[in-house]
């Protein structure tokens, strides 16, 4: 092979069911299809050579050429890369999310600038599942959250819980024990993570809420490695990235959800959708956290409010109905 790329992913190898490592595999296959097999890959899946946040450095200093990780682990280095994580109750259709993300990337060059500052370039932004709940008791109304503890991670999720619910911030690996011992009764994760952490063995109610647009599993390439490639190869790298996004959105994720649902149902899990009217009430009861975020990144020189506005408008134009408007400048 003409090009040898070392690739590291924080996700398990693609043969582990519903691993986002699949997206990296698709990208690699497509790249070789487009270039007639010019690439050879050496893969390190499952965060075996570093933890999540370290993957940014691994690819930035070219310990590996390509890394699949999550830039918003370090929000200070990629302040606006996590914009979809800031907006509660976003769209859950992965095809729509991919389209909107591409427009966002075209509209705001600051995204690429931040990547270049960190010596990387994002070549694919494949969507993952949206954030839903699994719980010991059914969740039908906001009342059902009262007095409950919910395990979750991240900066804002805790503030999006309905009134009376308590956030217990804990990493993925702890969720099984938390639910098993009854420290919490509700878990917040995308379906892929519910599947991976096996919490469906313990709690039997799956409630689709779409608390946030799908999570990301972004693929980054070392900037220098990319710039050294001839233009037609660069084009293929990016094109393979787009194909990986489309395939994940159009084929892989829906198929995964179907088999996940079948498997969960076999284990006795009941699926339901949280009523839209309740979501509306819920959204109205929350503070405008996105506006806080926007003000914060504006202070750093980013057009925070414009980004929120653009994302909401773009997704709305593509057919998504927001429960309310977020990111209103005071």
């Amino acid at each position: 092979a003409e090009y040898k790329l070392r690739c590291a992913s924080i996700y398990p190898a693609p043969d582990v069911p519903m691993s986002m490592g699949k997206a990296l595999q698709i990208w690699q296959e497509e790249l070789n299809r487009l270039t007639g097999g010019k690439f050879a890959f050496e893969n390190f899946y499952g965060a075996t050579i570093g933890k999540g946040p370290e993957h940014i450095d691994l690819v930035g200093n070219r310990t590996v050429d390509v890394a699949q990780t999550f830039p918003w682990y370090t929000p200070g280095r990629f302040p606006i890369h996590g914009v979809t994580y800031v907006l509660p109750f976003g769209p859950s259709d992965p095809v729509l999310i991919v389209k909107a993300n591409r427009q966002l990337r075209e509209k705001f060059p600051q995204l690429v600038e931040d990547e270049k500052k960190n010596k990387v370039l994002l070549i694919s932004d494949p969507p993952g599942g949206v954030y839903d709940f699994m719980s010991r008791k059914p969740l039908r109304t906001l009342e059902d959250f009262k007095g409950e503890k919910v395990s979750l991670v991240g900066r804002y999720f805790g503030r999006w819980l309905p009134p009376g619910a308590t956030a217990v911030v804990r990493p993925m690996h702890d969720r099984y024990e938390l639910l098993q011992n009854g420290v919490v009764n509700i878990d917040l994760h995308p379906f892929t993570h519910f599947h991976f952490t096996k919490v469906y063995e313990l709690v039997k109610y799956y409630t689709s809420v779409g608390l946030m647009a799908g999570f990301h599993s972004q693929i980054l390439i070392n900037l220098e490695a990319f710039q050294k490639m001839p233009p037609e190869i660069q084009k293929a790298v990016l094109e393979a990235g787009r194909i990986a996004e489309d395939k994940m959105a159009q084929e892989v994720l829906p198929a995964w959800f179907k088999s996940c649902q079948a498997e969960f149902e076999k284990a006795g899990v009941q699926f339901s959708k949280f009523p839209a009217a309740e979501i509306k009430k819920w959204a109205d009861s929350l503070e405008d956290v996105p506006a806080e975020w926007a003000a914060e990144v504006e202070a750093k020189g980013y057009p925070g409010f414009a980004i929120l506005e653009f994302w909401q408008k773009t997704t709305a134009d593509l057919g998504f109905q927001w429960a309310r408007k977020w990111g209103v400048k005071k």
Partner: peptide
Amino acid sequence: MLSGVSIG
């Protein structure tokens, strides 16, 4: 988690 075998 890695193997898909029931943790329970």
